[in-house]
Amino acid sequence: MERSRREFLKIAGASAAIGLGARPVIEAVAAATGHQAAPEAQVAHHPEALKATRWGMVVDTRKIESAEQIEKMVEACHQEHNVPMLEEERHRIKWIWETHFHNAFPSQSTDRVSEHLEHILLPVMCNHCENPPCVRACPTKATFKRESDGIVMMDFHRCIGCRFCMAACPYGSRSFNFRDPQPFIKEVNLKYPRRMKGVVEKCNFCEERLALGQMPACVEASKGAIVFGDLTDPDSEVRHVLRENFTIRRKQNLGTEPCVYYIV
């Protein structure tokens, strides 16, 4: 008697659970067949979100005085985006990093480079190319150019980790998670997703900050050395700086049309 009652309760409980679980499914089917108006998925927009047709950046190397200045930018970026600090050099993840002029511009460097350029380092990151070779290479559209503003973005959940994009990028701007990055993140920023092992990542021009009306983290930390804005707007600050100065872009001859310019 005792036993059968327990069994009855079990079955009843299970049926109730199935019934409850099935309800949203039934509702969804009903909605899809037109019995009820389906609620459209909506993305909330921040009222102060920064918008552009083509985001771009100008790095004024004249305003870079020390390596610490760039380190601050790197730190701001890597903290914002939960970039881990891995011990092994070959596994490192870099969204923005510092390098010599002759590394950033291998075909433009000379033996007789200006004294300033010889002594300083430059920040380098993803160029958010107009014609990104990485996007061309990706077999799953996990990396793509956002149509609205030209930012080259990553879908960390779609990436299969084939690393074709890394071979395709002529700037070495992409990093791969050779191991689980989570134990190596110093302070977790809960406002930005962390990654798992086996996917590629890179600079995203702080699209998550732009959506909230904030400037990219490196721009904020640069103390005026980086200007960021809409390249299609003739009145924007970047366009103003580009009009006033002679600028160069990395590997201009490859036709990728980088959106990061350098004043040297």
Binding site: A137, I160, F176
Partner: peptide
């Protein structure tokens, strides 16, 4: 064995990308 996320391998077929040589 070269894929970082082998369990997502079928993404190549689910999202066929005609501009990728890998496809």
């Amino acid at each position: 064995v070269d894929l970082g996320q082998p369990m997502r391998g079928f993404n190549v077929l689910i999202y066929p990308t005609l501009n990728s040589v890998l496809f």
